[in-house]
Amino acid sequence: MIVERRETRPLVLVVLSPVIAVAVALALAGVLIALAGAPVLDAFRAIAVGAFGSRLAATETLLRACPLILTGLAVAVAFRARLWNIGAEGQLYLGALAVVTLGFSNPLGLPGPLLAVLLLVAGALAGALLLLGPLALRLRFGVDEVVTTLLLNFVVVLLVSMMVEGPLKDPLAFGWPRSVPVLGDAQLPKIVERSRLHLGLVIALGAAILVNLVQSRFVFGLEAKAAGLSPRAAAFAGVPIGATLVKVALLSGGLAGLAGAVEVMGNRGYVSTDLSPGFGYFGIVVAMLANLQPLGAVVAALFAAAMFVGSDAMGRQLGVPSFIADVTVALCLLTMLLALFFSSYRLRRG
């Protein structure tokens, strides 16, 4: 059996890759559900109903998709330039921390909306700066950013833990380690009545459209892609690799930081060490399922969010551990890799 590159990449296969990947992952998840002794088809139906079956369910799914869209974008932007930012989780937490630190009081007496905008910017900036560190180490010392960004995730969560048990501790939280809340004025308004869905969804969708525009219509988008495809060729063609990677890092870290800001200002109101159930890591899956396309990330994030929200409901009904969602979404990453592979290669007897 030999692996052979296809002369052309059939468009059908490229477009269908995520669909095939998800289908295979769901089939494998079915085996695990059966292992738990639950009826598989009923379980899938319960997941779908739990994610979209009612107005409340649908808004909860959209709510969960907000941070996933943003972390998915963060990863997609970075991976496209072969900047291996695995630190979206840490950048998200630092963004959230920045928002709370600056937004629990309003000493300057700024109007609410203005404060909210400033806080969003501050959150994005915090995430962006956090990614500049590992990038500087890579450019200056040749240190692989995969490991440094991963290690920083743990450092930042500990920093959050330190702040919420120390200077930012909420005295009214009955001893729960969580921060003081962001001022009500500066929180994001709800966009659907009688639901928790907030303006963050609009921000996330706007970010996806903006990133798509920048990548397809601006020189920077092309430079970033070139730097990823072949740094040497790009440098030869006059692309400033270092400067391009810095911009990519600012954008990627900024998007992840924004995810944290939005999650605090729209959903939780405060920061704690359980703010993110792995949004940063599952952003990698979202980005890959989307084939690194910004608008695809929206769809992929919706799918992942539906799995998480739906599985919670299904787990309560049928007694299947809700970790089934994590397993399925993680499996999607592997099946998507395979699906993409077979869109450009084929196996031949030989």
């Binding site: 991976f79 899956v285 890959m288 994590d326 397993v327 993680a330 990453l333």
Partner: peptide, 14 residues
């Protein structure tokens, strides 16, 4: 890179 991270996510959630 990507396959390894996928294995980590899959193995730990499984």
């Amino acid at each position: 890179h990507v396959a390894g991270l996928g294995i980590t996510l899959f193995a730990s959630s499984l």
